[in-house]
Structures are given as C-alpha cells and as structure tokens.
Design a protein around this nucleic acid. Structure first.
Length: 529
DNA sequence: TATTAGTCAATAAT
DNA sequence: ATTATTGACTAATA
C-alpha cells in the first residue's frame, strides 16, 4: 500500500536530492556512543529518530522509508559488505579475507620465484600489471583491521551486532519487509550513497579507540567514576558467585537431541496444537514457552531461507552455464545439525543423512566451508592443472536436497501465493537484481559523479554480449535510480572459455584490487604486524 | 488469541 | 576480537 505508485519520480527525486547532497558540511552528531552503553535506545519508537543519524534535514528516516522506491536488499547488503571490506574495515577476519589458500600459495611462489612461475588459478588471465608484487601481498597479508559489524550496526543502523550479522547474511526481499524492516536497508542505501561513509566510520573507530585508551589511562586515580549502573546486582563477592540468579535468566540452550526432536515434530506439524506442544514440552522436559518460541523461531527462520533461495535463484537466472551446482547453499535450513544420531531413535530415520558438506566449487553464496567465505574462492589446488576430470558435478552426493533427508517434504507452511511485486505499481521496473560479479562499482569513493556516472571500469567491453542489452541500455533509469537506488548493471557473464576460470580470475582481480587499495592508503589506518 | 516480524543479547564458533 | 546463532521479547496483525 505504501508504494505510492506513479508520481514516484517526484518523490524519489526529492528524496534523492536530500540523500545526495545532504549537507556536505561535517556531520557532527552527538555520537559519543562508545563510553556508556547507557543508551536507553530501545525506547525510540516512532516519534523522533533518536538514532545515530543526525537529524539535519527534516525528513525522518521513516519518511524516507515510506517513499523509498523498491530497493534491492540483497544487492545492498552485498555492496555494504564489499565497501567495508574494500576499505579494510573487513568483516570477519583479522587479516584480509583473501583466502588463506591464495595468500599462502602466492606468497610462497613469489618468494621462491619472484617473477615467474607463479601458478595460481587465474593468474595467467591477469594482465601483467595487475599481478601483485610480493611486497603488496606481504603488506596486504598483514594488514589488520578492527572495526566491523558492531560499529557499523550501532552507528549506521542503530542495531546490535547480532542483528546486523543476520541482516547482512540473509536479507529478506524488499516486498516481504514491513516498513520497520525496510528501515535498515534504507539506512544502508543512504550510507552507500554518502561519499564519506567510510571516513565517518573510521572516525568513529578512532574515537572509540581514543575513548577506550582514555578510560584505561584515567583508571589510575579516579577509579571508575563510571557508574556501575548495573542494577543492584551488588557485588556480593563475599560468597561464591553462586547466589544471584533469577535476574539473570540462564538462557536456555537446547541440546542437539532436543532440537532434533523438535525438528521432527515440525516436519510432522509445523503448527502444532497446544496439546501437542504440551506433550513435546513434557517429553523433552522443556518449558512450554520454550517449545512455543522454538516453533515460532523455526518457522520464521525457515521462511527466510526460502526467501534467499528465491532471490538467488531469480537473480542468477539460468543464462550462463555458470557452474554453481547451486541446489541450495550448504547451509539451507537450520538443519545443519545433521544426524547427530546420538542414540535416540533411529526410527523413521529418513535414511540418507550423509553429511553433505562442501558446497560446489566456489559455491555462489557463502558456503560456510572456507573461513573467508566470500573471497575464499581461489582454492589453491597446487597445480593449476587443467584437471581434465569431468568437471561436472564434483559435488558430493547427488544434488538432491542435501540437508535433512525428507524435510522439504510437503508440510510446507501456508505458503502465501508468492505475490510477486504484483502491486499495481508497474513503474520502477527495478532492473533485475543482478548479482553481478562485478566488483568495483561500490567504490563510492568518487564524489557524486553526477549523471553520466558511467564509470564502470572493469566491465569494459563486457557489454559485447549480444543477447540482452538492446533496449535495456536505453531505458537505463540512470537518473534517479542510480542515485538512490541500485546502479548495478546486469551481470552479463561472458561465458566462453571456461567460465570457471574467468570467475577465478575475476576473484583474483578483486582481491588484488583490495590489496592495492589498502596498500596505497596513506596512513589512516595502522598496519599491525 | 495466535502468529509473524524485528530485535536483543547471551554465548557459540572462528 | 569478530562474526554467527538462537531463545526470548515486544509490537503489529489477523
């Protein structure tokens, strides 16, 4: 309903403007968040926007959210992650997220033979001047960064680390989000459009550190003026820290077997009756509320998994002969637990149950396997041997639902009729959510490029691809869309020669791009060794 | 009242 | 030190 059809152009434009050149002047903002977590944040309901963002102009985010055009949540999270890693604000990992395999192999080989014989997948495809020098690699490999989700989440999104992690990992499609749920995405988009986004973050980081240092320093005399606002937990250290419970509910942790049992129950009946719930609770010796909560959470999370599958499938089209066996990310439903036979009835054993593991090669989405998920691609594999073997399905088992044997079954939930973006609003066709392997793009570094932001580096001739293109290019809503929305060119993958190889090369390029960027950075960040 | 959506926050996992 | 997972809450809906 909120989608005010038509006329969107105007609202979007105004919105865009605000977003685009919002007071270049500093940002100010109170911040000062680091010190006391005393923020009584939760309270912020609908009234003002006490959140992190400075109020500057009028519009509250909620208003922005209300008029925001459809956003590509998946693409946004993807870019956010890219920007953060590109700027050494990497998410996970202390060092670069470039796969340890690659780093290892590269360093090793470069050391051994500085200017030759480097055998790394994709290396040959790299233009000579794009090959990293050993120095670069060395520096890159030792670059360490601190910041991350917590900072970004609290500062930019006003959410806690865990929420951010979840959001970035499994964004729900825009049309399935409530107004509230869209807010974080709008904030992210706004942040992406902000030319100083990264700088601001780094500033925050610095400030936090400063505050931290100061705190330790001052420690000397002034003990901790910091109120131990903690509730009257009284440090009755007198006795063993046994006493105080109650106020600190222990957080229930379900045992794997219990989860198994619950999942089994779920498969039979996603919406158990109160009676069934009671039974389960009794059998498992759990509180009724726990069982209820579990079902709520499980349903919700299962649903989400379906969403992402939907997104990936859709965006990935089947065009290219892209390798990805896909099927479903290894993670898929929280079924990972796998058997865990652990005694317990083998009854009904759906059979199967072999652990799947191993996503396809370079599994599209994060696999979970490698440490550095994303970039992990470059799987060393010493010899870059052509590996004649049937490159077909290297994956284990047949591709069939790797996870829970049955699961999937049919007990599917009420499945709302996939209401597509049906809503009347026909406009804003939203140029597909191409996953595009492209990289760059996100680099918001450049100042407002303004209209012809054709920038598009890497891509270059890629457009060669016959097929698509045609009219598409024309309509290009470069104007508004590009400003507030998703640039994102269609990822026309030029298959041709071994696409897998190209992919690897692209990945390498991306890694190198990051290394160079980090290495050339003057000195804003510290390089730790 | 039952469910879903969104989050938090403790704690697991890397 | 970070990121990921997940039981429990709080609103919003149906």
């Amino acid at each position: 309903a909120p989608d005010s059809p038509m006329s969107s152009s105007e609202s979007v434009k105004s919105l865009t403007e605000l977003v685009q050149q919002p007071c270049p002047p500093i940002e100010t903002n109170k911040d000062g968040k680091p010190p006391e977590p005393s923020d009584p944040p939760a309270s912020d309901s609908q009234p003002a926007t006490p959140l992190p963002l400075s109020g500057h102009s009028a519009l509250s985010i909620q208003e922005l959210v209300a008029m925001s055009p459809e956003l590509d949540t998946y693409g946004i999270t993807k870019r956010v992650k890219e920007v953060l890693t590109d700027n050494n604000l990497a998410f996970r990992a202390a060092s670069f997220s470039l796969g340890p395999c690659f780093r290892q192999a590269a360093l090793c080989q470069l050391r051994a033979a500085p200017r030759s014989a480097v055998r790394i997948d994709g290396w040959q495809e790299l233009q000579r001047d794009r090959r990293p020098s050993m120095a670069l690699l060395l520096r890159g490999s030792t670059a360490v960064c601190r910041p991350c989700q917590r900072l970004f989440g609290e500062t930019i999104l006003g959410l806690t680390q865990g929420s951010v992690s979840d959001l970035l990992a499994r964004p729900k499609p825009w049309h399935k989000l409530s107004l509230k749920g869209r807010e974080p995405f709008v904030r992210m988009q706004l942040w992406l459009n902000d030319p100083n986004n990264v700088e601001k973050l780094m500033d925050m980081k610095r400030m936090e550190k400063k505050a931290y240092m100061k705190r330790r320093h001052s420690s000397v005399s002034d003990s901790q003026p910091c109120e131990p606002p903690s509730v009257g937990v009284d440090y009755s250290q007198g006795a063993s820290p046994q006493p105080q419970h109650q106020l600190k509910k222990p957080r229930v942790v379900l045992a794997p077997e219990e989860k198994e049992a619950l999942k089994r129950a779920y498969q039979q009946k996603p919406y158990p009756s109160p009676k069934t719930i009671e039974e389960l609770a009794t059998q498992l010796n759990l509180k009724t509320s726990t069982v209820i909560n579990w079902f709520h959470n499980y349903r919700s999370r299962i649903r989400r998994e379906l969403f992402i599958e939907e997104i990936q499938a859709g965006s990935q089209g089947q065009a290219g002969a892209s390798d990805s066996p896909s099927a479903r990310s290894g993670r898929a439903a929280p079924s990972s637990e796998g058997d865990s036979c652990d005694g317990v009835e083998a009854t009904e054993g759906p059979g199967a149950a072999d652990a799947e593991e191993s996503g396809g090669p370079v599994a599209a989405a994060k696999s979970q396997g490698g440490p550095a998920a994303e970039v992990a691609a470059a799987p060393e594999e010493r010899e870059e041997a052509p590996r004649p073997a049937e490159k077909t399905e290297p994956p284990p088992s047949g591709t069939p639902t790797p996870d829970i044997a049955d699961d999937e079954g049919r007990p599917r939930a009420p499945r709302p009729p996939v209401e597509g973006p049906a809503d009347g609003s026909g406009p804003v066709p939203n140029p597909a959510a191409a996953p595009a392997a492209g990289e760059d793009a996100a680099t918001s570094a450049a100042p407002p490029g303004e209209g012809p932001c054709k920038a598009l580096a890497g891509a270059d001739r890629s457009s060669a691809l016959p097929s698509t293109s045609a009219p598409a290019a024309a309509r290009r809503a470069s104007s508004l869309q590009s400003l507030f929305g998703l640039p994102e060119a269609v990822g026309a993958r030029d298959s041709r020669d071994n696409p897998l190889r190209k992919k690897k090369a692209a990945n390498l390029n991306s890694i190198i791009h990051r290394l160079e960027k980090a290495a050339s950075r003057e000195e804003p960040i510290e390089w730790e060794f």
